[in-house]
Design a protein around this nucleic acid. Structure first.
Lengths: 247, 247
DNA sequence: TAACATTAGTTGTATGACCAATTATAACAT
DNA sequence: ATGTTATAATTGGTCATACAACTAATGTTA
């Protein structure tokens, strides 16, 4: 049999994951002990611990804040490039790939959610949609975008939770983050107004179908939502191109 | 504006990724310079370089072999747990989640592949299916399993390539790896004969539909292939349970 | 009260040494 | 020559220590 060697850094990474996900010793947004303490506690050098932390940060499990500490990531606030998309340089193609991918995945997700979700979990999706609607009319321009983006992530994560599917739950936070990043990068105008309106309207529509427990309707609404997203994006892209030509 | 600090380890990780994916300075299976040289070359300490390497290894981009060197990963041979599935403990639920997820994703993938793939890319899928068929009748029991598993990964990666979708191409190697691992873990009998027969038969069937450029047929065959996978797995699971009760 | 300086806490980086696994080389025996 | 064994070189793994850079809270002063 092969002599399987596992580096201490990997062992420590697994131990930390256990503490977070199984023993639930550290909850999301909670601060870990500093590297000196933690390395002593786990019986490894600080260098080894740091490698373990970097591994978990790369997977989006930990968030490192220089000068402050290392924290357990909050799924809704994840920013790590888990999929390594930064290495792809054709941003416009990337965004289109994302929409194509979501068009495959998300209608089925909403279907699964309605099929498997508890009343509470489904209500959480509806609540998020309502908050999005409320935000749209009240908040100031400044913080509006930021709040809406965060609420959009919450919306998608709530759907993932309701599916009761481990894989979807695991991927969705990274997916939502990556989609957000790629759109912002591609449009270069932050998240534009169109896609915000789009989110506001269709989150509400999807919520209606969920309330009726209409899986087909919800899936359709999601498909339409994403198709519209593609169109809006291509439109604003064209406008940008036209403007540049105008100069 | 926020003072965005990016650690040197992350900067170096990005530089290495550029060298691999853009400049193509190091190709899959190729060995990187050793840590002393590389750290000197990139102008950072060995500790910092190691953190960068760990990040890329966690993403499945690099493969570290103690005593030998650090290599660029070959997608078809990837083993890294990119999705962090090791942290999920209910293995049986995990496997079912995987099949559910693939049932959503893969029929659409094969559809996209037939729609967007070049003749050469589609031929590569067919070739893989043929190799699988050939393997089944010739190889020795010993290496058969290993070869078939590898060929299965090649099959799926070939499909991903043909879709021309960045996201699918990026996710598929990790997906194939994770599926393999979870099945092996769950069944605890290596990959059993049933699922191998299954792969042999349905790869060939899917290839037929590709040859006819029949997207609907191929998608259907893929759906059937995966549905059968779920059934076989549940069967062998039941058998195992029965055996245990028999003791 | 507000602006500023101080300070304690925390992650980031560098250096150097030594350990452990693997691979390549040389020596040896057959 | 050939195969085996011992030895050395290569390479990643781990540790210990020191200092730099940044954050946030605290205290100080106008």
């Amino acid at each position: 049999m092969k002599n399987e060697f596992i580096p201490a850094s990997q062992v420590v990474a697994n131990e930390l994951s256990d503490m977070i996900f199984l023993q639930k010793l550290y909850k999301p947004n909670e601060k870990l002990p500093n590297e000196h303490e933690l390395s002593a506690q786990l019986g490894v050098s600080r260098a080894t611990l740091r490698e373990a932390i970097k591994i978990l940060a790369a997977k989006g499990i930990l968030t490192i804040k220089r000068g402050s500490g290392t924290f357990v990531s909050v799924p809704e606030e994840q920013t790590a490039d888990v999929f390594g998309l930064n290495y792809l340089k054709d941003k416009m193609k990337l965004v289109n790939s994302w929409f194509e991918f979501r068009l495959i995945l998300e209608p089925s997700c909403i279907r699964l959610a309605i099929q498997n979700g508890t009343p509470e979990e489904l209500q959480a999706i509806i609540d998020s949609a309502n908050r999005t609607t409320a935000l749209q009319s009240t908040a100031k321009e400044e913080i509006l975008k930021e709040e809406l983006i965060k609420e959009d992530q919450i919306f998608h994560i709530a759907i993932a939770t309701a599916t009761h599917n481990d894989i979807i739950q695991l991927i969705m936070p990274s997916l939502a983050t990556a989609v957000k990043d790629s759109i912002i990068t591609a449009t270069q105008i932050g998240t534009d107004i169109k896609s915000i309106d789009n989110a506001t309207t269709y989150h509400a529509k999807i919520a209606e179908f969920i309330e009726m427990r209409d899986a087909d309707g919800a899936a359709m609404a999601m498909r339409y939502h994403l198709s519209k997203g593609i169109r809006d994006l291509n439109d604003s892209q064209r406008e940008n191109a036209t403007q540049k030509n105008g100069l």
